[in-house]
Write a protein that binds this DNA or RNA. Structure first.
Length: 261
DNA sequence: ATTGTGGCCTGCCCGC
DNA sequence: TGCGGGCAGGCCACAA
């Protein structure tokens, strides 16, 4: 499912849209337009305009529009970006049907040169928006400094995993990467966020950065070492202990009781 | 303000 | 064979 690595791939893919003029806006499902802006307002803002840049903050993809407006795309869990027929190397998302039925194309832009940008999303968990509130997101996980992580985790009794998933504190971490990172960092997901000492924050920061880069290199958030064992009865790939399963931070969580403390 | 919960949405897989 | 229920999880509205 699209977490930071997938959205970064989509950002690179969306570079292909930069500099091209939009001639048509196809809103296949009005529910896909988020943020309270009427679909026709979004369409009017994009029609005839040209994109000037492709950016990413956390899991939010932003296309800057000449004139100052911004076009946002969130992929939810099953969203895919297709530009000129290419998915940019992301072929099959977990939990997303690999069949590309046209009915799941929720939103599309047609360019003056005939090309198209399509957002394909079977489950409608993503969405597009005009002028998304980027400031509501915390610092991006990929460039997060140790000091920023310390701030994000400090003074809270909430589970450290919940804090990592809170996009307002740190942007870009989803359920799979949170579990993978905590597993690699030998840290129990339900540890109180504010209880981490400076050395633990440093360790978590180092492991998070390394994990993100490694998953990007491997091809996505589902390529982690914990992933194959992340099911009922699964065993820790490191020490063979049976993994625990519980809800932490509102998400299904797997962790190793033997080495995560 | 902070934190937790339910709902959205569909496909898949399990057990009966 | 068909069907119901549980589950997957990003994000938002809403409640406490």
């Amino acid at each position: 499912m699209p977490e930071l690595p997938e959205v970064e791939s989509y950002r690179a893919l969306a570079e292909r849209a930069v500099g091209r003029r939009v001639t048509r806006v196809e809103i296949r499902d009005p529910r896909y337009v988020r943020g309270g802006v009427p679909p026709r307002v979004l369409a009017a803002a994009l029609r005839g305009s040209t994109f000037t840049a492709s950016r990413r903050r956390g899991k939010l993809l932003v296309l800057d529009v000449a004139g100052g407006r911004r076009f946002g795309i969130r992929f939810g869990m099953t969203g895919r970006l297709v530009v000129d027929g290419s998915s940019g190397g992301i072929d099959a998302l977990l939990y997303s049907s690999t069949r590309g039925w046209d009915g799941w194309d929720r939103f599309a832009l047609r360019f003056a040169d005939g090309g198209r940008l399509v957002v394909h999303d079977p489950r409608l968990l993503g969405g597009v928006s005009l002028d998304p509130d980027e400031e509501a997101l915390g610092p991006d996980a990929l460039t997060l400094t140790r000091a920023e992580l310390a701030v994000a985790l400090a003074t809270s009794a909430v589970a450290v995993k919940a804090r990592l998933l809170d996009q307002a504190r740190v942007a870009g971490i989803g359920n799979l990467i949170a579990d993978e990172t905590l597993w690699r960092a030998s840290m129990a997901p339900q540890r109180r966020s504010g209880s981490l000492d400076p050395a633990e924050v440093g360790r978590l920061h180092r492991v998070l950065r390394r994990t993100l880069r490694e998953l990007m290199r491997r091809g996505g958030s589902h390529t982690g070492d914990l992933m194959p064992a992340r099911h009922r009865g699964g065993r820790c790939p490191r020490d063979g202990a049976e993994l625990r399963r519980a809800t932490v931070g509102g998400r299904t969580t797997y962790w190793c009781p033997a080495h995560q403390r």
